[in-house]
Nucleic acid binder design. Structure first.
Lengths: 221, 221
DNA sequence: CGGCACCTTGAGTATCCTCAAGAGAGGTGG
DNA sequence: CCACCTCTCTTGAGGATACTCAAGGTGCCG
């Protein structure tokens, strides 16, 4: 199911009242709030990019599938993040909810970059934030060991959705592997190794306590 | 030497007449034309991002150096490309000329994104082009073999600066290695292997003839 | 309590890296 | 014009890292 498609046919009188999302330091997005189930597609590669989305709760993965079936996850979108902005008319990646997620959906036309100055600036910031994240991702993937990649990932996640002590990962090992360009086994082994080294503690499969954030950050080089 | 620094102190009457670059389908950049020697720095990481640059001739590498000395090249800028646009006040990467290069230098303030609508749109396109390239780069670096990486690199370069038959690479093996997250030896071996397979022909160290572009493209997956 | 999906661990192997030396190309000076 | 120097690229041998294949464990949900 596609959220855009689901929203479009709705008659105006049936649509929920438009809302303004009030996430901290984010761009306000005027649109409908919708719920997406785990593993449900938000939009697919090649589909018209008519809407943009903001994560209110949950998490989303953006990825491409290569011809041989390998999946490269470009980014994870977490609460407060906006995604779905494209240069051309169509989406170049597929987006799926990692967990049940609540999204605000806005028409792309409502965000025209030659509209108000503040909106243009916000959009610009968004694009540059995404560009920065993409650069960092490339930096993570270039000639780095598995340990460095996983450490970077954990530090990044802790920054974005951590509580200062640790972080509750919304994604599976396979998702992490596809993001970091590793295999699921290597991710698992590396996490175990980080635990043995005393840098982290796995309080659950997806619940990670950072015992030594400084050392972890130094691993990131 | 830093180009920005070199330009700033010049008295107006000594400055060359501002020119408008007329590259195909690019953004017009109003500014001075300058020459940068091989391996000379255009700007450094952490320096104020007061100017943006357009490549008229030659090529530029944008990179970061990790704490242990490894260098990750984020992108190569080729004729027609604009670089140096940043989100914040400072540059997050260093830019150096690969070869002797001719650049158009424009003040960042002349490109304000809340200026004219057409300029805003052009800037937006630029940012989105760079974002697309960055995504592709991440896709190149994620769990791919050396062969796939090098093939992608060659196809990309042939698209951007090739003459339909082949491509004259402006960068060294070390630059390619730092871009693809490989070692210089692996790049060299992989190129040799592609030649043995009949996909390419090395007519010179940096002069590559694509004998079988279709097969090469299929390698990219 | 059972089933299923996810995660972990192990053994063996392939790929790529490291270290080392040799070959080409380009530039300079005699 | 040639010899020489330097820088870059290529090639080789050995070793480390991460992958593949396989089995066993853990936790969650019905």
């Amino acid at each position: 199911m596609n959220v855009s498609a689901a929203l479009a046919p709705r008659a105006p009188h049936r649509a929920p009242a438009p809302q303004v999302s009030r996430e901290p330091e984010g761009v306000r997005l005027i649109g409908m709030t919708t719920h997406v189930a785990r593993d449900q597609e938000v939009f697919g590669e090649g589909e018209p990019a008519d809407h943009v989305y903001k994560v209110v709760r949950g998490a989303v993965r953006g990825f491409r599938v290569l011809s041989d079936g390998r999946r490269q996850i470009c980014d994870f979108y977490l609460p407060g993040d906006i995604f779905g902005i494209e240069r051309g008319a169509d989406h170049t990646i597929t987006a799926e909810a990692l967990t049940g997620a609540i999204l605000v959906v806005a028409r792309r036309s409502n965000l025209s970059h030659d509209g108000s100055s503040t909106m243009a600036r916000s959009l610009w910031d968004l694009a540059m934030i995404e560009l920065g994240r993409s650069h960092d991702h490339a930096l993570t993937l270039g000639r780095r060991s598995a340990g460095e990649r996983v450490a970077r990932f954990l530090v990044d996640m802790a920054d974005r959705i951590g509580d200062g002590e640790g972080v509750e990962l919304p994604m599976s090992r396979q998702d992490i592997a596809d993001y970091l360009g590793l295999t699921i086994e290597t991710v698992s082994r590396t996490l175990t190794q980080l635990q043995v080294s005393g840098l982290i503690r796995l309080t659950g499969c997806r619940s990670i306590h950072l015992r030594n954030p400084r050392a972890l950050a130094e691993l990131c080089a």
